[in-house]
Design a protein around this nucleic acid. Structure first.
Length: 476
RNA sequence: GGCGGCGUAGCCAAGCGGGAAGGCAGAGGACUGCAAAUCCUCCAUUCAUCGGUUCGAAUCCGAUCGCCGCCUCCA
């Protein structure tokens, strides 16, 4: 599989450091509010990466942090802790805020079909690891203490800037105002910050009471759960600088080894052509969007564009994705349980599935080209429908069901069961109603048959008549 | 100011040196009591514009125009 590596600015063949194990770390959310569409795009994208790696046979360890301390409202060192600020607004304990929004985050991700990470480490639960890392950096001459603060010395790490493509000289010129007088160099960033009286979340350390800098947790926790070198480090594009650049400096400064072999960054989401920003008033929470669109429709919408492209969110686009989703789900519903039946699938079905699979995997192997993979899937749906229209064989249905469940379900994470009459009771009732409709039509009692269809429509079921006088009722 | 991306049919979106995928919307047809679903056919001689390289370019190079993003909140 080829993956675009931000470090080399090109596609590279992915190879695990020690197969079959693959360690993946993705920057997780700072939990001070409900998740928005941008989170959806990011974590759905990386979910597909994880799913695909597993499909390829890798034994993936997926780590995604939860930031519950140290992320300030301002990147200069004067900002307020986001969690603490929200705690004050909601009149709750900071950890209550963190817990509340962590749950909310997982709720939304579950709805989107995003698999849970193997470990979701909290920054506040890994302060000892972070202190150790700071101590190491001081010992190795990469950091220095000034009055309870510890700063990373950018000058001590000549490779600083290799990920973001920034030159050190530019950084000096462009460095934001250094609030802290103690910094030896305006580019230096805080590893450990002294906590003032007003701080609620603080820990004792060799440098006094304080709390860790935001960049530090990712270095400490990724190395704790994966090791010195990660196979893949992922995150949102906006984190390349300074966050990821600083992670590299901290980690490689401490270990002397390469921190991450592949850096993957997913692009941002815009709303009606503009960046999504709290201040711009086009902030879209997932929970709000889910009230109007099924989460799986949102997932499909995200997958319809490549993860490295900007995705523009529009209602029109969501509706279009909804129609596409209905098509996929209707096809899957048509295939039934997927139980084998007698005999093996026809040569035509076998070839159809093979062709679709080849096209699908070829796209996925090319830097997770999900739009291409979806095209292959839709082609299989069209050809499959056509084939079944002509000759409906149970063995073929089962084979197609298997293919759909693997490609759409397991790999792309699209749960297409929404339209099937999954529960036994509902399924049984649908069969009885379908039979009844058949009898009504047979006796040309069309008014009654139509009323039944209308009523079913109202509660979310669709009645369609099959050739030969039979009817079928499924969820819409 | 520094860095990056994009401009492909009405909308969305792959393709990135040699046949313009796919989805949505739309038109016609088949099927149907009528529908829905499904299937078939049609829907870009052309890929922002101009110039160049090449036997050959949407794909490479240069210029122009337009749009967007990151570097600050934010994934």
């Amino acid at each position: 599989m080829q993956l675009y590596n931000s470090l080399s600015r090109g596609k590279e063949e992915f190879r695990a450091l020690s197969p079959p194990h693959v360690g993946v770390y993705v920057c997780g959310p700072t939990v001070y509010g409900h998740s928005h569409l941008g989170h959806g795009k990011t974590y759905v994208s990386f979910d597909v990466l994880i799913r695909y790696l597993r499909h390829l046979g890798y034994d993936v360890r997926y780590i995604q942090n939860i930031t519950d301390v140290g992320h300030l409202t301002d990147d200069a060192d004067a900002g307020e802790d986001k969690i603490e600020r929200q705690a004050r607004l909601e009149k709750l304990e900071p950890m209550q805020i963190a817990e509340k929004y962590t749950r909310s985050y997982f709720e939304d991700m579950d709805a989107l079909g995003v698999l849970r990470p193997d470990v979701s480490p909290r920054a506040s639960g890994h302060v000892p690891e972070q202190i150790e890392l700071v101590k190491t950096l001081i010992e190795k001459g990469h950091a220095y203490e000034v009055d309870g603060f510890v700063y990373y010395s950018v000058e001590s790490f000549p490779e600083y800037g290799k990920l973001s493509g920034r030159r050190v000289e530019d950084l000096i010129a462009g460095a934001r105002v250094a609030v802290d007088e103690g910094k030896r160099d305006p580019r230096d960033f805080a590893l450990w910050k002294k906590a003032g009286e007003e701080h609620i979340m603080k820990w004792n350390s060799p440098w006094g009471w304080g709390y860790p800098g935001w960049h530090l947790e990712c270095s400490a926790m990724s190395m704790r759960y994966i090791g010195d070198t990660l196979d893949i480090h992922g995150g949102g594009l906006e984190n390349i600088f300074p966050h990821h650049e600083s992670e590299i400096a901290q980690s490689e400064g401490a270990t002397g080894r390469q921190f991450a072999r592949f850096w993957l960054h997913n692009n941002m989401l815009t709303v009606d052509g503009q960046k999504m920003g709290k201040s711009l008033g086009n902030w879209k929470l997932l929970k709000e969007v889910f009230q109007r669109f099924h989460p799986m429709v949102v997932r499909l919408y995200i997958l319809r564009s490549h993860y490295r492209s900007q995705l523009d969110f529009t209602d029109e686009g969501l509706e279009s994705a909804g129609s596409g989703f209905r098509r996929l789900a209707a096809f899957r519903a048509r295939l039934g349980e997927g139980k084998g039946g007698e005999g093996s699938p026809s040569p035509a079905a076998t070839r159809l599935i093979e062709d679709a699979g080849n096209a699908f995997f070829q796209s996925m192997d090319d830097d997770l080209n999900t739009p291409g993979a979806l095209a292959a899937l839709f082609e299989m749906v069209r050809a499959g429908n056509s084939m079944l229209d002509e000759d409906d064989r149970q063995a073929d249905r089962a084979a197609l069901a298997g293919a759909m469940d693997l490609l759409a379900g397991e790999i792309l994470g699209l749960d297409l069961s929404g339209y099937s009459t999954s529960s036994e009771t509902a399924g049984g009732l649908c069969e009885i109603l379908a039979e009844t409709r058949g009898v009504l039509r047979e006796n040309r009692l069309f008014d009654a048959a139509d009323r039944m269809r209308d009523r079913l429509e109202e509660i979310g079921y669709a009645a369609r008549d099959l050739p030969g006088g039979k009817s079928e009722i499924t969820r819409r």
